Computed example of a mutant assay.
Amino acid sequence: MSDFKEGDVVRLKSGSPAFTIAWINQDRASVGATWFNEQAQKVEVQEVKISTLLKDED
């Protein structure tokens, strides 16, 4: 398992825009991912499984 921490910028392994990790669940199986939805002009939050993420290299 990767060493993710709050504030890390990540992407889905299958490809996606960048997300920022807002929180990590106690079981370390999922995180709260946030991003800015430009079309809706608001911040979005989604729970995402850690196994689907990679740290962003940009």
Rank of each mutant, 00 (worst) to 15 (best):
G15R: 04
S51V: 10
V9K: 15
Q46P: 10
V31H: 01
D58M: 13
L12Q: 01
E47S: 11
W35Y: 11
T20G: 08
K13D: 04
R11P: 02
N37W: 00
W35P: 01
T34W: 09
M1N: 04
D56N: 10
I21F: 02
V43F: 14
V43I: 11
A40W: 05
D8V: 02
V9R: 14
N25I: 13
R11C: 04
L12G: 06
A18P: 13
D3C: 12
D27N: 05
F4A: 00
I50N: 08
W35A: 15
K5L: 13
L53R: 01
D27M: 06
F36S: 12
D3G: 13
V31L: 02
D3Y: 12
S14Q: 08
S51N: 08
M1D: 04
G15N: 02
A29R: 13
D27P: 00
D56T: 07
A40I: 07
V31A: 03
E6I: 10
R28H: 13
S51G: 00
F4W: 06
K42S: 15
V10E: 02
V48I: 06
A40Y: 03
T52R: 12
F4M: 08
M1H: 01
K13W: 05
A33N: 08
L54D: 06
D27I: 05
D27K: 02
D3E: 15
F4P: 00
A22M: 04
S51I: 04
E6S: 08
Q39F: 11
E44M: 15
V31P: 00
V31E: 03
E6Y: 07
V10C: 01
Q39Y: 12
S16W: 05
K42L: 13
E44N: 12
T52W: 06
I24L: 09
Q46K: 14
I50D: 04
E57P: 00
M1C: 07
G32Q: 13
T20R: 06
G32M: 10
S30G: 09
T52M: 08
K13L: 05
I50G: 02
F19S: 03
D3S: 15
Q46S: 09
S51R: 00
N25G: 10
V10T: 05
R11T: 08
W23D: 13
Q46V: 09
S16P: 11
V43M: 10
Q41H: 09
G15K: 04
W23T: 12
A33R: 07
R11G: 01
E47C: 15
L12C: 03
T34I: 12
G15D: 02
K13Q: 06
V10D: 01
E57D: 06
S14W: 06
E47H: 06
A18S: 09
D3P: 08
E38W: 11
W35Q: 05
I50C: 09
L53Y: 01
S51D: 07
N37A: 05
F19C: 04
I21D: 04
I50T: 10
R28A: 04
S2N: 07
N25H: 15
D56K: 12
A40T: 11
R28F: 05
Q41G: 04
K55T: 06
S14K: 13
D3A: 10
L53I: 03
N25K: 12
D58I: 14
Q26E: 14
F36C: 14
K55V: 09
K55G: 02
A18M: 14
D56R: 13
D3I: 10
